[in-house]
């Protein structure tokens, strides 16, 4: 089991409770979409996966290792978090240094570091931008580099927060192709339902701080009553293609 979340509950310091007992498991190699309306607790959940927030109750395990103070370093290597705004993620002056930041913190140096940086950029098709400053790249390019910064750490699971937000249709498609060809476990937080359908066989719906549904993405999206109950909607004119095609 790559990711296991058991009875996770959490309240912010100001007393607002965001998670009320989340249970989920993700197997190796799966691509899973985490759907839910704004304010459902998606980002809060994601922050628990690599120990930025620590569970008020319950536990999170990544490849059998429980998230906690002592395991923090190892957990952060295993869980690759891609933030929603690539400007938050790309904080170094050049793409090269940004992609190198993670592996360098793990103690990788010299030729091995260069190799990892180049390889990660190759996987997202951004090798040519290696010496450019991030703010000279287009938004779509920045998001691809943001994915590379995490891939360079060789994570067990890639966690993407709203990967398709603010992308134009071409960049959206390019990113989808890249994600489909990656050979890693993916947890994708989104309310872009067609994107979830395209990329993930399985989906979870997080609503009011608990997992409200878990099943094949196609089945979940076909259940109109379920979607409506959790403030989710398919875009106008979009229909689930008949299964088997």
């Amino acid at each position: 089991m790559t990711l296991e979340v058991r009875d996770l509950a959490y309240a912010y310091p100001d007393g607002t409770q965001a998670l009320f007992g989340v249970n989920l498991t993700i197997a190796r190699g799966e691509r899973v979409a985490l759907l839910g309306p704004n304010g459902a607790g998606k980002t809060t959940l994601v922050m628990h996966l690599n120990g930025i927030l620590t569970a008020g109750h319950g536990l999170v395990r990544v490849a059998g290792l429980q998230v906690g103070k002592e395991t923090m370093g190892e957990i952060r290597r295993r869980v690759g978090l891609v933030f929603q705004d690539p400007d938050d993620q790309l904080f170094m002056p050049t793409v090269r240094e940004d992609v190198a930041f993670g592996p360098a913190n793990l103690g990788v140096r010299g030729a091995e570091l260069d190799r990892r940086v180049a390889e990660a950029l190759d996987r997202v098709g951004m090798r040519d931008a290696i010496d450019r400053p991030p703010h000279h790249l287009s938004f779509g390019q920045r998001r691809r580099v943001a994915v590379a910064t995490v891939l360079a750490m060789d994570p067990e699971i890639l966690v993407l927060d709203e990967p398709s937000s603010n992308l134009d249709p071409a960049s959206r498609r390019e990113l989808a192709e890249i994600l489909k060809n990656l050979d890693v476990t993916v947890l994708m937080v989104t309310h872009d339902l067609p994107y979830a359908l395209e990329l993930c066989e399985r989906a979870l719906i997080l609503s009011d701080g608990v997992i409200a549904a878990d099943g094949p993405t196609r089945d979940l999206l076909a259940d109109e009553a379920l979607l409506t109950a959790h403030r989710l909607e398919l875009p106008y004119g979009f229909a689930i293609p008949a299964s088997g095609t």
Binding site: I52, R76, D88, F101, N105, M153
Partner: peptide
């Protein structure tokens, strides 16, 4: 940004690349 740094193993010193 600080959270993003922590997520990639930052422990208070910047690696010199």
């Amino acid at each position: 940004v600080h959270l993003a740094m922590l997520s990639r193993g930052y422990t208070g010193t910047m690696p010199i690349y």
